[in-house]
Deep mutational scan, measured.
Amino acid sequence: MSIQHFRVALIPFFAAFCLPVFAHPETLVKVKDAEDQLGARVGYIELDLNSGKILESFRPEERFPMMSTFKVLLCGAVLSRVDAGQEQLGRRIHYSQNDLVEYSPVTEKHLTDGMTVRELCSAAITMSDNTAANLLLTTIGGPKELTAFLHNMGDHVTRLDRWEPELNEAIPNDERDTTMPAAMATTLRKLLTGELLTLASRQQLIDWMEADKVAGPLLRSALPAGWFIADKSGAGERGSRGIIAALGPDGKPSRIVVIYTTGSQATMDERNRQIAEIGASLIKHW
């Protein structure tokens, strides 16, 4: 067993022997301040990774656009098919120029040779490549099948209805392509620590998230040296922004954090800054 596999296998073990965790309302004060600064709703939840206990939450059962955070769930569904012998990570998928959609920095470079399922998941999570996500959605049967996968996990809230990039439209009061912070946090925890996926697939999923290259201005910008984070960000229309993450000190994750916002007129930089400040408060009061 590799060191990384050992780390993920012992996530519940280490967490069980940690000192009790206590909620700190100071972080919620910052979440509410972010709402004021952005002029928009902000949803927040913080779960203990081992027990699933909610440590703090704000608007945990209000719907927010998922945006690209759905790509972690998508690759979880792909990995479940791999575990069941219905898919192979090494299978190569070929596609054409007509398949390319807006923001496809990886797939646009491989029109000639195609990409493997493993490479597509890596591109979808680490670079948020939209064509990679659409190609992977095709392998599982489309958005409705991802929703069905989530329902089978016990998540009857999260739903995907459309493809990239239309799913980022974020129309107010439109339930399409949305989740709730509580539902997303619980589902992410199941994917990373539950028995739904094999140990190898859980490790692969967290490795992809740990290698995320496009979430630097968010929670990662607030992390002290030595902290662990595996995350996936999302951005959408109407001032929408979000991030889902597993993080913790001492090089291992111990909490799940989900943050979503929508309806702001603020710039992307300002949305990023507010999420980073929430992260800084979380870490300060850990």
Rank of each mutant, 00 (worst) to 15 (best):
A266L: 15
N173M: 15
L100Q: 05
L196P: 13
A200G: 14
F6Q: 09
L137I: 10
L19D: 10
G43C: 03
M115S: 04
Q203K: 12
G239R: 02
F14V: 11
I256M: 07
D33N: 15
K144M: 12
S281R: 12
V31S: 03
T112M: 10
R59H: 08
P165I: 08
A215I: 03
A34H: 03
R59M: 04
K144H: 10
F149M: 11
V29G: 15
R92M: 10
E119I: 01
T187W: 04
G141M: 06
A16H: 15
M268G: 07
G248P: 00
Q86H: 13
E62F: 07
A230Y: 03
V257Y: 05
L137N: 04
L79E: 02
E56L: 08
A84D: 12
Q4P: 09
I93R: 03
I125N: 03
R255D: 00
A222C: 15
Q88N: 13
M67H: 07
L137P: 00
E195D: 14
P143C: 06
K190W: 09
L223H: 03
K144C: 12
R241P: 00
D36W: 15
H5A: 09
A222P: 09
I256A: 05
L79I: 05
D129L: 00
I229R: 01
A280Q: 15
G279R: 01
N50I: 10
M153C: 15
R162Q: 08
A215W: 02
L196H: 15
Y44V: 07
R92V: 14
S2K: 11
R238W: 10
L55N: 07
R159N: 07
P105I: 07
C18G: 10
L135R: 04
L150I: 14
N272L: 02
E87A: 07
L136W: 00
T138N: 15
Y95N: 01
K232V: 00
Q204K: 10
M153I: 14
I259S: 01
L10I: 12
M180V: 14
T187M: 08
W286L: 04
A23N: 06
T131V: 05
R91G: 05
N98L: 14
V72L: 05
W227A: 02
G242V: 01
L100G: 03
R176G: 06
S80W: 12
A276H: 14
F58E: 05
A124V: 08
D177V: 01
M67Q: 08
E56R: 09
